[in-house]
Every structure is written in C-alpha cells, then in structure tokens.
Design a protein around this nucleic acid. Structure first.
Length: 785
DNA sequence: CCCGCTTACGTTTTT
DNA sequence: CGTAAGCGGG
C-alpha cells in the first residue's frame, strides 16, 4: 500500500489551476496507482457511497436511509479529503451527539492509518462536535467582539426555570396565571425560530404575545447580568456574532472550508443560519440526513431545511443511500410499511442486505406492569441465546414509562442503564459542587452564588439575603460585589458578617488555586474546605448515594488534569454543561440493557429492540392526535425506533394502562395496523411464557430475582449467582416479626410491613426501610405466633 | 434549623 | 399514582 506520488500534490495542482472539482475527482479516481477496489478510502463501499465519498467539492446532499452506512460514508469522505491533502483544521463535522463526534474522529484515524498518507498524523483530526459545543468554542474565543464577557456560564433548564420564576414574581404574575414552564416554552419557541427579544417585541400584537416578548426581554437581561448563556443562546449569539462582525465570519469561513452536517433533517433556524453563513464563501457543504427520521420539531427543527436543500443549492449533487446493512428484511419491510403511510416524503426504497430473519414480534399484554415483565423476560431469553445485554434496548415514548422497566429489571436481576429522566449532572449534590466551580470561575453568576452561599449551611438565612438583595439593587451592584463590601451593609449582625467574609475569602482562595491547579484539585478543595462530605453523607442510604455521586463527579474532573489550570476548569464545566444523555453510553463496558426514549435512540443500533407502549394516546401521543404534522412525526418516531433493530424487533402494547391513578383502555396504535400480517408474529401471553422459570399458572413473582440497585454510573447488578442465593423468599411469608437476612446488612427482624415496604431492625442496631422484591433479603425464620 | 407531613401537580420528546 | 415542593411543628 504505497503511493509514489501523494495525491495531495495532484489535487492541489489541479485545484490551483482552477480546474472544476468534478473533473478533478474524476482524474484522481483514474489514478493508475490506486483503483477504487484496492484503495482503503473506497474499499467495501457501494456505488452510491463511493460517489458520496468521491464528491469532495461543492454542495452535496446525502439522503441516507436508516442503517445505510451513513457514518461510514462521512468517515470515508473526510478521510478522502485528508488523503487528498486537505489539512484537518479545514474540515468541520457537525454531529448530533458528542459521542458521534468522538466515534467519527476515531474511525477517521483508523482509515488514515491504512492509507499512510503524507501529512495526516493521527493527532491531526478534523474539528467535530455538536452545534452547541462548536458554537461554544467560537464564543469563548470571540464573544467579546459583540460586547460580552468570554467567561460566560451555561444555564441548564433548571437554571432557566429559576430565572423565569423570579421574573414572573417581579412582574407580579401569579404562578396559577402563568407558569414558569409555559413562559419558558414560549421563550424557547422564539429562540428556536431564531427570533431575538427585540424582534419578538416588535412583532407581538396580541396581549399574550406582547407579554411574552416582555418576559423574554427581561430574561435576556437577567442572563446578561449573570454573564450566562442558555443552550439556545450558544447558537443565537454565534449567529449574531457572524452577522454583526463580518470579519469574524470571514475568518471562520477561511478556516473551515469543508463542512459536514449530520442529521440535517433536525436542524433548526439558528443552526441552519449558522451553517449557511459558514458555507457561503466556499460552498463545500455536505449535509446528510433522512427526512423520515425528523423527530425534533418541538425544538424548532425544520424538515424543510433538508427538503429544500436542492432548491437552495441548485448545483448540489444529490445522493441516495438506500441499501440497508443493519436490519433483516422483515424488520425493514415492517418499518417501511409504517413510514410509507406518511404523505409527502421524497421517494426512497430501502432494501436489506440481510435476507434471513425472524418476523417482527407483536404482543398484546394486559397492563403496563405485565408489559415490563414481558419485555424483561424476552431480554433474558435473548440473553440465553447469546445476545449480550448491551446489544438490547427497551424504547418508550415518555420518560415516565421508564420506572416500570427499571423495577422489572431490578426484580429480575437484569443489569440496566437508563438514559434521560433524572440526570446525573442535574442532581442537587452534583449541582452544588458545580455551582462552587462556576462561582470560582465567574462570581457574577448570581444564580450559582445564591445556590451555594448557604450550602453547606453557614447560617446565612433569608433575612440576610433579602437585605443583600436590597443593597445590591439600590446601588446596582452584583451580589458578589455586595458580599465583598459586606461591612457597608446595614442591618446584618456582626456574626453573620464574619461568616460572609469567611465565605468570600474561601471563594477567593479557590480562585487563586484555580490559577495554578487543575479542576480536580479545586473540586477537592471545595469539598474539603466546605465540609461537603459531612453535609451530604448523613448516615442514610440516600446520603451514601449522594456521596458516591460527589465522588463520581470528582473522578470525572481527573480527566482534565493534564490541561493547563485555567483551561482545565473551563473545559470541564463546558463539557459537563453540554453533555448529552447518549454520550454516557460509551463510558465503561457494562453488559447492561439500555432503557431510553425513542428520541434518544436516533443514530444507535441494537441486536434486539423492544418498543413498548405502542398504543393510541402514547404512540401516537395524545398531544399529537389533533395535529396532522405532529401525527406524522409520531409515526417517524416509531419508524426510528423500529429501524434500530438488527435482528429482533418486538412491539408491545397494553390493553389497559394506569395513568394518573386511573385506568384507561388504549386501543393498539394505528401505526401497527399498517404492518402487513405476513411480517408479524403475533404472540400471546402463553407463548412467551414457555421459558422454564415462568409458566402462566405460576405466581408471577416467581421469576423475579432480587438485585442490588446501584447508582446510575454503575448499574450493573453483582452477578447471576448472587441472585440465586437471595431468591428464596416468598413475599407473602414476610410479615411483622419475620427474621430475615440481608445480603450486606446482616440479620434482622421485620418490625412493620406495609405493602411491599418493610421496616427492619437489624441486629447491629440500625433500622432500615426496604422494598420487597428489590432488597436482597431471605427469610431465616418465619413469623412466630 | 430540620424533619415529617400534607398538598398540588404532572407526562411529550432534549442540547 | 408518584413525586416535589411547601408548610407547620418540634
């Protein structure tokens, strides 16, 4: 594998002669030294993929169906660019998650190793990331050009909610009149359409519109004062930067000459404007996407961005990837049958490479509890067939559905991990530590300051804070400035003033430290000097978990140790703020089944996929029943879920489901009716209960195996053998007075039982509340009467 | 200041 | 139904 003449030379000489790209690439392909069949850049690609990889200049639209080797195509295309001598720093790739960005880089690195091209060392890889992370980097560098401070913090939705809540309160709007959530949704609506506060004000006509615009304006002002940006601002401010500072835009245009955007069907207005501006000069824009997988319209994603691409760039080369490498024919046909019912889609006929497969399993279950059991049982059955848990997933429409699956996994001793829902970085104890770091970095971040000033308790109460707020408002000082001049504030006792002074000294010391030490040292110092451990760890089980979370956070900071001190803290906080749920999938090699929403599964694949809750009202969700476009999106959502499956796909729906305390009978999803019968294997309960450890006549509880719940980052339950040992108890036999043994806590006596919760006094003196079916306990002696 | 109880509210989906 | 926030009592 050697090239006597690096292609780069040929490429650039042709380039400089201004030979059009189409001719240039043709010439290159006919390079006698390297044919498409032996070149690692092209090897193993189908014709369409080769075309995509080979079309290096000008606008390119790749319509890539599910499982069509999209990532592979982008990877090879970028590798091709680099093999042609395009420097890595001229290439930008926008991906949907940080995980995808990372994988992209790794795969490009691998191909380049095979090509051993000149000037492409592995450490020179293209810039890739999500829109948010790329914009964040741009702003860190250049936001001062539009009059803002570059040490801004990023507010998450909790922070946003607090700000809006405060604004509503100040405006005298009662929560029952307008909830912060609702107001925030409106602001988000403006932002995802790229409407600034000024525009919103000038545009508003109705009373509500005017009022929303006013709230929006105040919200932006509050963010500005706190030197904070929310997620949408990262995009909006970058767009504003490009618009107001053409020279800055020109600089980036001159840097990134070859642009790639993945999941283009899910771009919103600011994202679209961002990428269009960047592409305007060189027009080397390659967008990849699938209109059938557009599922983010609720956050402003506009499917027209991809549908109209050709109109916008009439010279665009359009390529369709229609060969599916992922799923079996049956799965693909079933998914295709579902999506085909949507109107106005571009013509696309997917065909599967894998011809042999099983039918799609469709099963009706009595209720949602049963549904979770069946799902977990099927997973165990597949596991028995040798399919690892990591290669299996349960998908559902709403996060609220996750709980039952989680419980079923716990009972069955199946290790699992949940994405979405309660997020690690949104936990109180974690946010507290982060708030210290934010304050150290940027004391004008009043929200963080307020969060930690009395955490752990420093006996600085509401009255003091109210006084300080007044003082700050009167003199238009930030809270931090007031704290620094605490001696000037009236009406605060000397003792409190002392404690406040101690606090400011603490923060200043930490600031000093952050200039010379990496973020992990600062975080450790925060925990040590504030007595966080004592505060968090209160001898309860929850306290232990909280402390574990703090430890986990600390261990994450260690990854940033080898950066220069200031960069260490900023990049840590930045990555933590912009981390997505799916990004967590690749830390650790747990063999655990994944639970997540249908939205999160885009871009992933699993051997076995279970889509739960295929019912009217749930999928399609009740909120979409009245709206045609939303209904189409619900259908796409199911399509995305189905096409994640490589080998086995099962669809579940429950006859009856408890929602908000009352039962409702949902009809099976209308989407299911579009799947032809010959592709479906309709399972009855009896059929799936053929597995040994469950017969339909046996009590349900028999197959539940207790398991130990752990925190989110180490969800693996110990191992199978543990479950065997602790299986033996029959819940009915446990009542007041029963002697039990706990796997870790030792022996004890049940003091009280209510439902599945028992209060146990252990022989070592401590008393705990345990959940039957979850806690690893067995009976030693039955109740004495 | 902290704990425990009551009440009110929520379920689309996320960077 | 389950959770989170808010309130009142110790």
């Amino acid at each position: 594998m050697c090239r006597k003449f690096p292609r780069a030379t040929i490429f650039w000489s042709l380039f400089l002669k201004k030979v059009t790209q189409k001719i240039a690439t043709r010439v290159l392909l006919s390079d006698p030294l390297m044919t498409p069949d032996t070149d690692p850049i092209f090897i193993g690609l189908n014709e369409q993929q080769k075309l995509a990889v080979d079309t290096l200049k000008g606008p390119v639209l790749i319509l890539a169906g599910a499982g069509s080797g999209k990532t592979r195509t982008i990877t090879h295309r970028i590798a091709h660019l680099m093999a042609q001598g395009v420097p890595a720093w001229q290439i930008l790739a926008v991906t949907f998650t940080n995980k995808a960005a990372k994988e992209l880089k790794e795969r490009i690195g691998k191909i380049l190793k095979l090509t051993d091209s000149a000037g492409t060392e592995a450490n020179h890889l293209p810039i890739s990331g999500t829109f948010h992370s790329i914009c964040c980097r741009i702003l860190r560098r250049d936001i001062e050009q539009i009059g803002r401070n570059k040490s801004f913090v990023i507010y998450d939705s909790d922070d946003q909610q607090k700000i809006v809540g405060q604004i509503l309160k100040d405006m005298g709007i009662a929560p029952e009149e307008l909830k912060p959530r609702t107001a925030l949704a409106h602001i988000g609506g403006f932002k995802s359409e790229g409407v600034s506060a000024d525009k919103a004000r000038s545009r508003g006509t109705s009373h509500t519109e005017v009022r929303m615009a006013e709230i929006y304006t105040k919200y932006q002002k509050a963010l500005l004062e706190a030197n904070a940006l929310d997620f949408d601002d990262l995009l909006m401010e970058t767009v504003r930067l490009f618009e107001e500072r053409p020279e800055v835009l020109a600089r980036y245009q001159g840097t990134w000459k070859f642009l790639h955007v993945d999941e283009y069907q899910d771009t919103n207005n600011p994202q679209y404007r961002f990428i269009s501006m960047l592409a305007a000069q060189h027009r080397n824009l390659c967008v990849i996407g699938d209109p059938d997988q557009s599922i983010y319209s609720f956050r402003g994603a506009d499917i027209r961005n991809i549908l109209d691409f050709q109109r916008e760039y009439p010279d665009a080369v359009s390529i369709k990837l229609e060969k599916n490498y992922r799923s079996t024919q049956q799965i693909l046909d079933a998914a295709d049958a579902v999506i085909s019912a949507n109107p106005n889609r571009p013509e696309k006929k997917m065909w599967a490479e894998k011809k042999d497969g099983t039918k799609v399993a469709l099963q009706e279950v009595t209720d949602e509890r049963r549904e979770s059991e069946v799902a977990v049982k099927n997973i165990l059955a597949f596991k028995a067939q040798g399919i690892s848990l990591a290669d299996q997933v349960i998908l559902y429409r709403t996060n609220a559905q996750s709980r039952l699956f989680e419980e079923a996994c716990l009972r069955a001793g199946v290790p699992y991990r949940i994405l979405g829902g309660l997020k690690f970085y949104a936990r109180k104890e974690v946010k507290d530590v982060l708030a210290y770091l934010y304050t150290v970095l940027n004391p004008s971040d009043t929200l963080s300051l307020l969060r930690i000033i009395n955490v752990p308790s420093r006996k600085i109460g509401d009255t003091t804070m109210a006084r300080l707020q007044n003082f700050s408002n009167e003199r238009s000082l930030s809270l931090w400035q007031s704290l620094k001049h605490i001696e000037m504030v009236d009406g605060i006792s000397e003792g409190v003033k002392h404690r406040i002074a101690d606090f400011t000294v603490l923060i200043e010391n930490l600031q000093q430290l952050s200039k010379t030490a990496p973020v992990s040292a600062v975080a450790e110092s925060v925990i040590k000097r504030t007595g966080m451990e004592k505060w968090v760890r209160d001898d309860t089980e929850e306290g232990e978990t909280r402390w574990e979370n703090v430890q986990e956070l600390l261990s994450v900071t260690k990854k940033y140790d080898n950066l220069p001190p200031e960069e260490s803290i900023t990049s840590f906080l930045e990555e933590v703020a912009l981390i997505s749920e799916v990004d967590k999938l690749d830390d650790g090699n747990h063999d655990a089944v994944t639970l997540m929403t249908l939205h999160l599964c885009k871009g992933l694949e699993f051997a076995c996929v279970t889509v739960a809750g295929c019912e009217e009202g749930l999928l399609p969700h009740s909120s979409a029943l009245m709206d045609r476009q939303q209904m189409e999106e619900e259908r796409r959502l199911l399509y995305v879920g189905m096409t994640r499956a490589k080998q086995h796909l099962s669809l579940l729906h429950a006859t009856s489901r408890t929602l908000w305390g009352n039962n409702q009978n949902n009809a099976r999803s209308r989407f299911l009716d579009d799947i032809p019968l010959n592709l479906i294997d309709v399972k009855a309960e009896e059929i799936s209960s053929k597995y040994g450890w469950l017969t339909s006549s046996a009590p349900e509880k028999k197959w539940w195996k207790p398991a130990t719940p752990k925190n989110e980052f180490s969800q693996e339950t110990a191992s199978d053998d543990v479950n065997q040992d602790w299986l033996d108890h029959v819940e009915e036999e446990i009542s007041d007075g029963t002697k039990i043994e706990h796997r870790t806590l030792g022996t004890g006596t049940v003091m009280h039982r209510s439902g599945d919760i028992v209060e146990v006094r252990f022989d070592n003196g401590q008393t705990k509340r345990l959940a039957l079916g979850i806690a690893p306990i067995k009976i030693i002696a039955a109740t004495q009467h």
